[in-house]
Design a protein around this nucleic acid. Structure first.
Lengths: 260, 260
DNA sequence: CCGTTATGGTGGATTAGTTGCCGGGAAAAG
DNA sequence: CTTTTCCCGGCAACTAATCCACCATAACGG
């Protein structure tokens, strides 16, 4: 059995962080800051009347932190609208290695890969905080999407955003070293959760080394070592399971500039 | 400057291969065979009348092999419907490393990441064979999508498929070694282009080592070495720039079984 | 107070990337 | 048809990145 990022327990990242400046976005592993924010909430773009129609077709489900919403390999049907909380979507390889595809927040939908039912979950979804979601079955969703253009457009924009996230992740994984990916991730977390502090910018969300490892596709140990090296160079400060970014400029240099 | 996969020339994979059993799919780097085939063609799902309306809004563009359709970093607007040929979509890192996100074939659309205009190309598109595409500007596409449910559904399914491809790629990149990724890729190519042969299954499409390297996120040299090792173990046979898979069973074992 | 979980660390083994060179072959040029 | 050019595959030596199997200690929740 591989030992990766403290085991294969399904990973339960702490989720005590504040909503942050962009409560709508996933943890998008990309280099383009303009993406932070994501698409408009699928629900909020509907008129009150449309919203009512859509929600009537769904079934609400409440999850405690750590609970599984859906499991890789299981059959699936339709999507889950996130009303509140945060869902971690991740893939587990046969060898037990995990990669976090995204943390999705309220306004987004998860499930997939298909939206109109059918198929098999290619990844798992796990509540990384207490959550409330609404399940929309595929068949009903398809009907609704043909009847309510607003909903179809919303789905298209949501899917577009997902495509961006996943391709950005693949881009990082395919072209950067782990250290670079980590530097990038820290900058990203800083933008999402950053809070000013005398020593720099505090990342006000408790991610364990294992969580970070899953996000950049590395082992927990290597993340620990990388962080330590960064600390030696005074780029970051890790005080008590919390990371303070002191030199974002150096991090940016490390990850490689964006292309734009 | 990094030297990756024989340089950063924009990569022009040979494209002499036959259409294969699933002319509609991208090179999906995933482990689920049922995905081969992709969504129904965006155009073909429309009624003749709808098709006419949609195509009237577009502008046809013909590309020779090696020509660039769009470039990472450039502004973009709308999507390109592929009528014939194959488009390689790839990302180049600031250091010059490349990762191929997919080869898209007729029936799919490329461009993005946004479909309704706006934004900046996050990757480049290059004709890896002679192509004919139709450009649909974002604004017009949006209008059409609200008026023609068929089109909206088609976009949704196309985007869903892209999401599958990109997340599958991220999954492979994030959890497998290069050797495993290569084994997986060979199996995948075998399924797409395989032709029976006395020695095994011939992959009847000319991909250079550099092309393969870009697909699995590795250097050309490492692909060469990996292939050589596979050949030593009689798993594959490389005769004359063409790969013959002798032991698909071993390859499957190497990549790690699918989870399903 | 105790079991569990997270951080810190280490040395050895592997994997992977870098640099550089060389020969064959296919395509292009003449 | 012949020559030239350039890509592609092959190879090697060296270095760097990363994984892996442990172990120890520190916090934390109950």
């Amino acid at each position: 059995m591989l030992q990766i990022a403290s085991g294969v327990r399904g990973g339960t990242p702490s989720a005590s962080g504040p909503a942050g400046p962009s409560a709508n976005s996933s943890l998008l592993l990309t280099e383009s800051p303009q993406w932070i924010g994501g698409p408009p909430s699928l629900i909020e773009r509907l008129t009150p009347r449309e919203r009512e129609i859509v929600l009537k077709q769904g079934r609400r489900k409440v999850l405690n932190r750590g609970q599984t919403l859906f499991s890789q390999g299981a059959k699936h049907d339709g999507i889950y609208l996130i009303e509140s909380g945060r869902i971690r979507v991740f893939y587990t390889s046969p060898q037990g290695r995990e990669i976090t595809l995204a943390y999705w927040r309220a306004g987004n939908f998860v499930g997939g890969p298909e939206v109109f039912g059918g198929g098999i979950h290619q990844w798992s979804g796990l509540a990384s905080s207490n959550c409330s979601v609404v399940h929309l079955p595929g068949k009903e969703l398809r009907t609704l999407a043909t009847e309510i253009p607003n909903l179809a457009i919303g789905l298209i924009e949501g899917l577009t955003f997902k495509g961006k996230c996943y391709s950005a992740l693949a881009q990082m994984l395919g072209t950067r070293s782990i250290t670079q990916r980590l530097a990038h991730l820290l900058l990203h977390l800083m933008n999402l959760y950053g809070v000013e502090d005398p020593d720099g910018v505090v990342i006000a969300a408790a991610f364990t080394h294992a969580d970070l490892a899953h996000m950049v596709g590395a082992t927990r140990q290597w993340v620990t070592i990388s962080l330590k090296r960064m600390q030696e160079k005074r780029i970051v400060l890790t005080k008590r399971s919390q990371i303070v970014v002191c030199r974002p400029d150096v991090l940016e240099e490390m990850r490689g500039q964006a292309v734009d």
